[in-house]
């Protein structure tokens, strides 16, 4: 899964409702790879509206991925360096295996074959 997918997911254990803690999930023991992909400006502009940018920069920093500014530039299209770095972090950074832990309730979701497993047991829903 790309970091984009991680940015879309949160803990959904029933009692875990604090939005400050159930998102973003904490990546642990992950295997990372960079997958070179052609940059697509329209796709990035679409994603800028969909990404939680604060969560993205927090996660990127934890993974040692530097170079994203603290805030989205006012005119991102006019900032090719930003667009390229966003592309690399969001769409080229791929997690093949690992875990995502909730900072609220501690629930751990696994990532296998690049696919996150968000299924919960009956009593957790």
């Amino acid at each position: 899964m790309r970091l984009l997918t991680h940015n879309m997911l949160q803990c959904h254990v029933k009692k875990c409702t604090d939005p400050a803690l159930n998102f973003p999930l904490q990546l642990q023991d992950i295997e990372l790879e960079q997958v070179e992909t052609e940059e697509n400006e329209d796709l990035l502009l679409n994603l800028i509206n969909k990404v939680d940018y604060n969560a993205l920069t927090t996660t990127a920093a934890q993974l040692g991925l530097v170079g994203l500014p603290n805030a989205i530039p006012k005119d991102p299209q006019a900032d090719p360096a930003f667009m390229t770095r966003l592309h690399e972090v969001l769409l080229e950074t791929n997690i093949t295996q690992g875990k995502m832990a909730c900072r609220g309730c501690g629930h751990v979701y696994t990532i296998k074959d690049g696919i996150p497993n968000m299924l919960l047991a009956e009593h957790e829903i």
Binding site: M1, T5, L9, K50, P116
Partner: peptide
């Protein structure tokens, strides 16, 4: 973006 889940469980409410 592929996710192993029921419906859209686990997606951020935004």
């Amino acid at each position: 973006q592929l996710v192993n889940t029921r419906f859209t469980e686990g997606f951020h409410p935004r």
